[in-house]
Design a protein around this nucleic acid. Structure first.
Lengths: 246, 246
DNA sequence: GTCACTTATTGACGGATCGTCATAATAGTT
DNA sequence: AACTATTATGACGATCCGTCAATAAGTGAC
């Protein structure tokens, strides 16, 4: 029967989410490296075989957490787009969302970082990797659209013939790198003389200025825009972080 | 006796290098994830206890490979500085060296990437982490010096009061991110429509233009500079990569 | 309601891997 | 040669991973 299979399928997906949530929780409480398939099995109500029915390996599980992470990130992106401002400010809002996501869900960000590691890439299942790429595509598409709109609006006029995709990749790489290095630095108890937010803002300003994305940073107060994004779009989340930080 | 201890110490360090080299070789041949302490022990002439006398854990070993990697990178940086050109071209040469290093030693780059992962950071020994930070400091210092020289030369005049360190961090994050994402993409057999070199060049051009680092990219043909770096400084290595690539 | 058949679940198990530690060996000292 | 301090050894216990034969649950036919 059709309905039966559908129900079954639904239960399967629900359980997968449950397992992913549990795995994340385990990492949160026990530390990132302490996540173990055995522990996950012990913590859930299912047997090892069932868990392995969902995730072909530990790395596959990591990858799954990673894609789920990008799904919630995508939602943050959609919200960021609602920011009332010019294209460059919208892009800034996306960067804000990216950073916010990393702060809200450090564990998830760890997974994303690990998922760029060959040790994980080598062992994750092909299906999972494909899903991950699709999500990355979806996330990139959001930024692409902003760049394309900026061209239409005349905010981005440099005609060197670079595609939106290239610009998106550049800002993505910059955000990824900045966040990764920051996290590593804080994890290693390094001195952190410069505030993460300010650095992030500076870096995006430099890159977008280099794209000649007007209004340029000396023509507009993007620190204020950054603050506005925090207040007008993500007030709740920012408050949550503040509370957790203390 | 003084001389005795010294000799002993020397032998210890020599053995450590030997082990590191061996570990890297194992990763090269068996795949990144296949590196195992047991295998390393089996491959070397020492016992497990001795190996663990050098590296407190597998992650510590990874970290050690990572710092050694940065040492060779530092040498490449020194050579890059020899490039005959303006400050911005020297910085470009540094970026070239960074990329070159990742291409020449993919395994080492994997280690560097993994070393940003909390799973590794959590388990590496404090001493090792400190060494790693020192090396990062040394590498940053090279770029810092170029930025500072550029200010003295009047090539970098933007007076927004940003320190060389901030600029260095920005370009470092951009390079790290670009390389990491590229490697992950190629590992996952993703479509790669854009050439890595061109993308890298574009990204640095954008960022440095945003810093108002003259001559700006529309005032100078940095693609040519990039090629010159390849020919004049790293011809040997580039040839090696070409050969290996086929 | 029962039987045959398909699909999903279980958890014990083998094979690896990690890191430790009591024991053995080696070097230096007296 | 005897004694001490340092280093090396590899067997061992504890995990951890992933598999698979056995078991249970679900489904449709009669």
């Amino acid at each position: 029967m059709q309905g039966y299979k559908k129900k079954r399928q639904l239960a399967f997906e629900e359980r997968e989410q449950e397992l992913l949530y549990l795995a994340e929780e385990l990492m949160d409480t026990l530390g990132f490296a302490a996540l173990t398939m055995d522990k996950l099995v012990a913590a859930c109500d299912y047997s090892k075989g069932t868990v392995y029915n969902h995730f072909s390996s530990k790395e596959d599980l990591l990858c799954a957490i990673c894609t789920r992470s990008m799904q919630v990130e995508l939602q943050l992106f959609e919200r960021a787009l609602q920011f009332n401002g010019n294209s460059r400010e919208k892009l800034l809002a996306l960067c804000f969302a990216y950073r916010l996501h990393a702060l809200l869900n450090p564990t998830q960000f760890y997974c994303v970082l690990s998922a760029k590691t060959p040790a994980v890439l080598e062992k994750a299942s092909p299906v999972r990797l494909e899903q991950q790429q699709e999500l990355e595509q979806a996330l990139s598409a959001v930024a692409d659209a902003v760049f394309e709109q900026a061209v239409l609006n005349g905010e981005l006029t440099d005609g060197r013939g670079h595609s939106a995709g290239e610009f998106t990749f550049a800002i993505w790489a910059l955000m990824f790198g900045t966040n990764a290095l920051f996290n590593a630095a804080s994890e290693a108890h390094m001195l952190k003389p410069l505030s993460a937010d300010q650095t992030l803002l500076l870096n995006t300003n430099l890159l977008l200025d280099g794209m000649k994305f007007s209004p340029l940073s000396h023509e507009h107060d993007y620190a204020q825009s950054w603050q506005r994004v925090a207040d007008e779009i993500f007030a709740e989340e920012v408050a949550l972080i503040k509370r957790n930080g203390e």
